[in-house]
Write a protein that binds this DNA or RNA. Structure first.
Length: 496
RNA sequence: GCCCCCAUUGUCUAGUGGCCUAGGACGUGGCCCUCUCAAGGCCAAAACUCGGGUUCGAAUCCCGAUGGGGGCACCA
């Protein structure tokens, strides 16, 4: 248990694309900390960049969080005591604090044109020095600057980074980080259109929303000193800073590119939360999986439900090193969680996959097949592949598929005929009634169970791999089983 | 180029100076179970990046190198 003080944490995505695994993990940790401490999990939309806004992205992010089971307590859709929760609706707030920063000498108006800045940057790059603001407007007399602003001259507001000394900031995972102030650029806080940038907007919101822990990706580590400076300049206490490691591609070599991310779907994988449901993954599995990429409970426990995690999560067991995404392990967790499901729940969850496979599953049959396929699928979408024959009017195996290993087609037909007569004579098509005489036949024929049952399996299911034969035949029913057997025999006879 | 972060088997990780002949999991190989496929059980191979310190003692602390990652926008 990391803290008994109620934590107020926020997940603050920008609506510029899909919710991906990295964001999902951040949101998950936010959620866990909030629930564990009896605090609040806040959803804030960082949409200050109107140009990059993607229609529908906000809704997709919310749908993704809901799918994972991470319901927020305050957010743009449900409001809350510290709203609005969309930065585009908080513009005036940021301007007010920018003014404060200017008045206290911690920020300044900058009138440099983008063109000039671009020239300076290319010059700096040519001379192999760190691209940074050259300080042209830093020392314009404040009254003079104000006069130019009032006169309507285009301008931005920049943070006036201290030029001497150093700053030490504490990250929960990495301890104290110290950097020289001169390496911190005079970042732009407010754009020429009057909208604040992340560096100002997020700090203002975190403070106003009383955020206690800022959990975010490690890509923010380089600007952490800036953020700390802003808090201090405004006279605010800082939240706990928690910078999570990044997710690397499966090879462990670098972040996944857009192209690579899009290509994953061909292998039944994805890094976008929106895709996992259709790929047959349970939200429980995804949660379990991403939790363990960067966090551990002890040296052996790996199976967790969301409520487990609420109880067991702790910030001090977070791991700062980058983690390669391992989809094989997701499959493993998915199998574990599938088998952990109640049978009725499992049957309910596989239904849509039969439907999208073009089949017409009825709930009663679904409930019967659920227990015999539950431990045979790694992902839900495999259900119709392994059990689709239950809902098909006919199955069409080839004579070759029907022929048992080590036997000819004619011999297999013979075996099938003997099986048929046993199955015909059986009073009930149950494993109890059908299996003993079938086993006796195997014995009598001197063949292996695999050879004999294999012929029946293929005849009845149309597949060489299927759920247990006798249980399957019981579900299909005697009439249909006999029908399929007769068809198989005729197929075999034709080939022999 | 500059700044920051990270460093245990192929991968996710445990390990916070002696309990480590380094533990667990996925994957891999073998065996068992077995009507196929799974599931399950058992076994095996597989790691402390390197070099210096500190210490009686280092995977664990310090320094350096190397490697990897991230950042250097009027994006977030």
């Amino acid at each position: 248990m990391s803290s008994s003080i109620p934590a107020r944490v926020r997940f603050a995505p920008s609506p510029t694309g899909h919710l991906h695994l990295g964001g999902a993990r951040t949101a998950l940790y936010d959620y866990l900390l909030a629930r564990q401490t009896g605090g609040q999990f806040i959803l804030r939309i960082e949409d200050t960049d109107r140009k990059r806004l993607v229609p529908g992205a906000e809704e997709e992010i919310m749908a993704g969080l809901r799918w994972l089971g991470l319901q927020w307590d305050e957010g743009p859709d449900i409001g809350g005591p510290y709203g609005p929760y969309r930065q585009s609706e908080r513009k005036e707030l940021y301007q007010e604090y920018a003014r404060q920063l200017i008045e206290s000498g911690n920020a300044f108006y900058c009138f440099c044109t983008p063109e000039r800045l671009e020239r300076v940057r290319t010059e700096q790059q040519k001379n192999k020095i760190i691209p940074h603001y050259d300080g042209t407007c830093r020392n314009i007399d404040p009254d003079e600057a104000l006069r130019r602003v009032k006169a309507g001259e285009p301008h931005v507001i920049r943070f006036k980074s201290p030029q001497e000394g150093s700053i030490t900031v504490k990250d929960v995972l990495r301890g104290e980080i110290t950097v020289e102030n001169r390496t911190i650029d005079d970042y732009i806080l407010v754009k020429s259109d009057g909208l604040a940038l992340y560096h100002l907007a997020a700090m203002v919101d975190d403070h106003l929303m009383k955020i206690t822990h800022v959990i975010r990706g490690s890509e923010w580590l380089p600007t952490l000193p800036l953020h700390s400076h802003i808090h201090r300049a405004l006279g605010w206490d800082e939240p706990q800073w928690v910078h999570l490691s990044v997710f690397l591609k499966p090879t462990g070599k670098g972040k996944m590119s857009k192209r690579e991310a899009a290509d994953l779907i061909k292998d039944g994988h994805s890094i976008f939360v929106k895709d996992f449901n259709d790929l047959g993954y349970l939200p429980e599995s995804v949660v379990n999986w991403i939790t363990l990429m960067g966090w551990s409970y002890d040296d052996h426990t790996e199976f967790f439900s969301l409520p487990d995690l609420v109880e067991k999560f702790s910030l001090d067991r977070l791991n700062p090193s980058p983690a390669a995404i391992n989809f094989t392990k997701l499959d493993h967790f998915n199998g574990l969680h599938i088998r952990d499901l109640q049978v009725t729940d499992f049957s309910r969850r596989i239904k849509p996959f039969f439907v999208s496979a073009g089949l017409n599953p009825d709930d009663a049959t679904l409930l019967k097949i659920a227990p015999i396929i539950q431990e045979r699928v790694a992902t839900l979408d495999e259900a119709p592949e392994i059990a689709g024959f239950f809902f098909k009017p006919t199955v069409n195996p080839t004579a070759e598929e029907l022929t048992a290993k080590g036997l000819t087609a004619a011999q297999s037909a013979d075996v099938a005929r003997k099986c048929l007569s046993i199955l015909e004579s059986v009073t009930e098509m149950t494993p109890e009634a059908a299996e003993p005489p079938m086993r006796a036949l195997v014995e009598e024929l001197g063949l292996s169970a695999g050879q004999v049952f294999g012929i029946v399996r293929t005849a009845v299911t149309g597949q060489r791999v299927s759920p247990p034969l006798f249980e399957s035949m019981e579900i299909i029913g005697k009439t249909e089983v006999l029908k399929r057997m007769r068809l198989a025999i005729s197929l075999l006879d034709a080939a022999g």
